[in-house]
């Protein structure tokens, strides 16, 4: 039984269907990727899972409970932690205070008046590698740092399911790599991780299962190798369809462009290119 299941989730805004009958799942101890072009509905689906957006249709099951109608905070208490694509760090608090707030909420109101130091705060900051920034205000740190801060903050509530919305954008190559290791460690400890991500190296490197979303629909689900060689996925990502005769741009340019969208740092020349395996 999966820890999280999205069953036939549909979200409509006016005439636009952002998520269209989407199914996906996440398992404990495993990292699941959710990829797709901009506007495919990935973030909307995250909002549905965490309760920020009520679905037009469909259900969300978490730990064998139907949580479709449960409020955001109850889902968090059940063990859902998340980060945001558009950062939601508490800008007027320091990095340490951000994590401390999450610990306070997690520990409950009774702990608020004790004044004991929580060792876990420092540990979490160390785990994501933000020691240098502890006393800086969250609105003054670089984007990548703020993303890692959101990860630390989400981890502070000891989640069983961690939803990460583009966690690596703003990180450099080395940081992305150590972030990947962090995710693998978390998974090894039993955490289920669901991740929206544009960095294909990261996604292909750490995910066991990948769901591909296009126009709100899950068009493919599989292992990194399967996804890599899937023509539909390539078409979705590159922006051309197989039957398109109007394509004038050579495939290698398109591939390069895709890689660029995926790559955190185009000045890095040692990137391995994931796409277009099946081309021969």
């Amino acid at each position: 039984m999966a820890l999280l299941e999205a069953i036939g989730v549909t979200v409509r805004f006016g005439g636009i269907t952002a998520v269209d009958d989407a199914f996906l799942s996440a398992e404990p101890g495993s990292i699941t990727g959710l990829i797709g072009p901009n506007g495919a509905g990935k973030t909307t689906l995250f909002n549905v899972i965490t309760g920020l957006q009520p679905p037009t249709k469909g259900r969300i099951r978490f730990k064998n409970h139907d949580v479709t109608r449960a409020p955001v905070d109850r889902r968090a208490k059940m063990g859902m932690g998340r980060t945001f694509q558009r950062l939601e760090a508490f800008g007027s608090l320091t990095v340490r205070e951000n994590v401390q707030v999450a610990r306070d909420v997690h520990a409950g109101a009774r702990s608020w008046f004790g004044g004991r130091k929580d060792k876990r705060v420092g540990e979490l900051i160390e785990i994501v590698g933000l020691d240098r920034y502890v006393n800086q205000r969250a609105d003054s740190v670089p984007t990548g740092v703020a993303r890692l801060l959101e990860v630390a903050r989400a981890l502070a509530i000891e989640p069983e399911l961690l939803l990460l919305d583009e966690p690596s954008s703003g990180l450099d190559e080395a940081e992305t790599e150590s972030f990947g290791t962090l995710l693998q460690n978390l998974a090894r400890e039993g955490c289920a991780i669901l991740m929206v991500e544009h960095d294909m190296d990261l996604v292909m490197g750490v995910c066991e299962l990948i769901h591909v979303l296009e126009f709100g629909k899950v068009i493919a689900t599989g292992t990194p190798a399967q996804i890599r060689s899937n023509r539909a996925v390539q078409a979705a990502y590159l922006g051309f369809s197989d039957d398109s005769t109007t394509m004038q741009v050579p495939d290698d340019i398109a591939a390069a462009a895709t890689a660029m969208l995926a790559a955190p740092n185009p000045t890095e020349t040692t990137l391995s290119i994931p796409a277009v395996d099946g081309e021969g």
Partner: peptide, 25 residues
């Protein structure tokens, strides 16, 4: 200076993030 103060500021900065941490606002 304490937990409640931090929470007040946090809640003003981002109610959505507070909810996803499990705070019943």
């Amino acid at each position: 200076r304490g937990a409640v103060g931090r929470l007040l500021i946090a809640l003003r900065d981002s109610p959505a993030a507070c909810a996803t941490l499990g705070l019943n606002q």
